[in-house]
Simulated scan of single mutants.
Amino acid sequence: MTVPPGALVLRAVGGSALLAEVPDARSALALYSRLRAQPSAPPALDGVIDVVPAERTVLVTFDPALTDAARVRRWLQEAAAAPETPGAGRAQQRVEIPVTYDGSDLDDVARALGLTVGELIALHTTTRWTAAFIGFAPGFAYLTGDDDGRLTLPRRATPRPAVPPGSVALAAGYCGVYPRESPGGWHLIGRTDALLWDARRDDPALIAPGTDVRFVDAG
């Protein structure tokens, strides 16, 4: 996916960062993946410190002593316009997450989507999910799916004051897994024992941006 001409907006953030604004989460993930698809990591452009995707932005931080904003700006523009090359970049990470589908909102979600509970579970487990960005809490990945919007519903009208850790939830076109107990307004459809965040691991987050996620019905 390339960013359409004129859709990329670059804004300076102080003297050591540029914020790229794009139309949607898929464009942000595509730009992030292209910037990271270099022979080395962190990104191969000398002086770049980090690349951080969000829902419709990608933040690039850099060391002004090693590069300058104009060079980073050109790097972003070239990446946004470059045609997608199948198989290019780093090998995509894949994670399978076992889920017990007994969430307190499961029946309501199925009814709202015009599905039976069995159909909802089947659709959720056959959808290919991709981590677009991390936010809200350490390890909380916003997952986009190839379900053509069939699993899209708004957030709950009334958020819960406490959502149990490991809760698998849907809202606003995303799926997510709560890494710890926290307030939340997403619809709970199941739970998992997978540890989404563990500071003792070399990579604390189980799911990083760009990770391919599959949910498996644990029965």
Rank of each mutant, 00 (worst) to 15 (best):
D193M: 02
T57S: 14
I189A: 01
D148M: 02
H187Q: 10
E181W: 02
D107H: 12
L170F: 06
G166C: 09
A131K: 04
G139Y: 01
S33Q: 13
P179V: 08
M1F: 01
R36Q: 14
A171V: 12
L106F: 07
G149K: 11
A28R: 09
T61C: 07
D203G: 14
A69E: 12
T127W: 03
L188H: 02
R214S: 11
L143V: 01
V51S: 00
P39K: 03
S167E: 03
L115C: 12
I49G: 07
P5G: 09
G135D: 11
V163A: 04
E84K: 04
G47T: 10
V99A: 10
D147I: 00
A132S: 14
D217C: 11
L188E: 01
D46N: 13
H187P: 00
G6E: 11
Y32E: 06
T158E: 15
I49T: 14
P23W: 00
A65T: 15
V60T: 10
Y178A: 12
Y174G: 06
T144Q: 10
D108E: 15
P161C: 03
A131M: 06
P165G: 11
Y142C: 00
P53A: 07
R180F: 12
G149A: 11
D107R: 14
M1Q: 11
I189S: 01
G176K: 06
T158S: 13
A82R: 08
G89D: 08
P209H: 03
L151W: 08
A65M: 14
T2Q: 15
G145I: 01
G6P: 07
T61A: 14
I207V: 15
P161T: 15
A69N: 02
E55Y: 11
R200A: 15
S33K: 03
F140H: 08
A17M: 08
G166D: 07
T116K: 13
D50I: 03
D148F: 03
V48P: 04
D198E: 11
D46Q: 15
Y101F: 14
D146H: 02
A25R: 11
